[in-house]
Design a protein around this nucleic acid. Structure first.
Lengths: 217, 217
DNA sequence: TTTTATGTTAACCTTGTGGTTAAACCAAGC
DNA sequence: GCTTGGTTTAACCACAAGGTTAACATAAAA
């Protein structure tokens, strides 16, 4: 009785593309249907309304984006290892879904409530544990003092900002796509070093960066 | 003959608010008219179309946002002073127009061309000069080596990211508005120190930060 | 006072859009 | 063969949204 030709998934995949490109308000149900090669009514058959379809897309995006990152930050790794792992997780995630950062930021601005709800459900970030790691480092004289909140914001800013502001950066620096990818690669290997330098002179001594090109684990 | 009751400016001001809240696609000409207390046709009388009105808003926003920042970076100040001035300029600009960062990012994503055009017109950022300052510092052994592009991206990321991602940060950290403002204040005074630490052990020795609270010039 | 150019409005037009409906399609079970 | 139930479509609907028009208001110029 059930044909299950994967239409539902097909719609979701195409909806993701359209919603990314145009945002919720700019997206058209017709375009999603066209791109999926089906009738518009069929989209409504599976996802009752535009809002529900968007929710499905948004939740799917967040579920792909957040758990790996939160997982790393909540893990038992040493702080230096954590930074490495976080950067690696972020860049690899974004390289397969380059639209995600901009999309999430954009739509979160349009509808903060949805995000707040999701943030509550999916295991909250454990700032307490990170804080203990930072304080331990300070006690041992390895780190300068820095508030956990600022630490996390800085790490995230380093990773996410270039993707979010890509258009602006490219326009202003007159970077073509190839050059920008280069810059991103450079960041991927440089961020851990920058974070270490920010934390203090004792951090990550084996990875101290003094040259432009940078090593990678 | 000309009455000039300031209607044109009135429309622009209200359009800014609406476009910020809803983005281009989400904004309604009717809502802009309503908020301005005038007829919808009058909006079209002054600004022929939604697109033109939006352009006016966008250009006005960029003209308020960019010149002060580019001005600082292109100036003759010493690098440490430049960082201070940039942070100060950014935070003071944003504190009077908190919507701007998110708005610019969002709409630049929707229409990169407009931004590219504007970036070309309004005096481009002079990376060459900044680069010379960085290289001079390296030659004197005061700075570690860092690519200009990365330096600028990092500075901008430090300043802009919290405003752009505010909703996400607040949702995840469960920060209320008051706490978030606190965090922003803390950043405003901490960023120069972080940038200095990133640049190298010799930078900004008189401002090296070792405590959570930080001084302000 | 009449003219004239600018401001302003109510009413209207056209198109696009999210959403619905009723009918057709089609594979499996009887 | 015929029913059955999920799947798919063409046609349709209501209404919202951008934009236009023609008339009206008003203050300065003639």
């Amino acid at each position: 009785m059930q044909k299950d030709t994967g239409t539902e998934q097909l719609i979701l995949r195409n909806a993701e593309q359209i919603f990314y490109l145009r945002g919720f308000d700019g997206a058209r149900m017709q375009e999603i249907a066209d791109r999926s090669g089906i009738n518009k009514a069929l989209v409504h058959y599976y996802y009752r309304s535009k809002a529900r379809l968007f929710d499905a897309v948004f939740v799917a995006a967040l579920q792909r984006l957040l758990p790996p990152l939160v997982g790393v930050l909540n893990s038992e790794m040493a702080l230096e290892k954590k930074i490495d792992a976080f950067v690696e997780a972020y860049f690899s995630m974004v390289s397969s879904h380059p639209f995600m950062p901009g999309f999430v930021i954009q739509e979160m601005h349009r509808n903060p409530a949805v995000f707040r709800k999701f943030a509550g459900e999916s295991g909250l970030l454990d700032l307490g544990k990170l804080n203990r790691q930072l304080e331990a480092g300070v006690a041992e004289g390895r780190y300068r003092n820095i508030a956990v909140e600022q630490f996390v914001i800085n790490l995230l800013a380093f990773c996410a900002f270039p993707f979010i502001a890509r258009q602006a950066i490219q326009a202003f620096g007159a970077f073509d796509d190839k050059r920008f990818e280069q810059i991103l690669d450079e960041r991927r290997s440089s961020i851990p070093g920058w974070m270490a330098e920010m934390l203090g002179p004792g951090a990550l001594p084996e990875k101290r960066q003094t040259s432009r090109g940078a090593e990678q684990p």
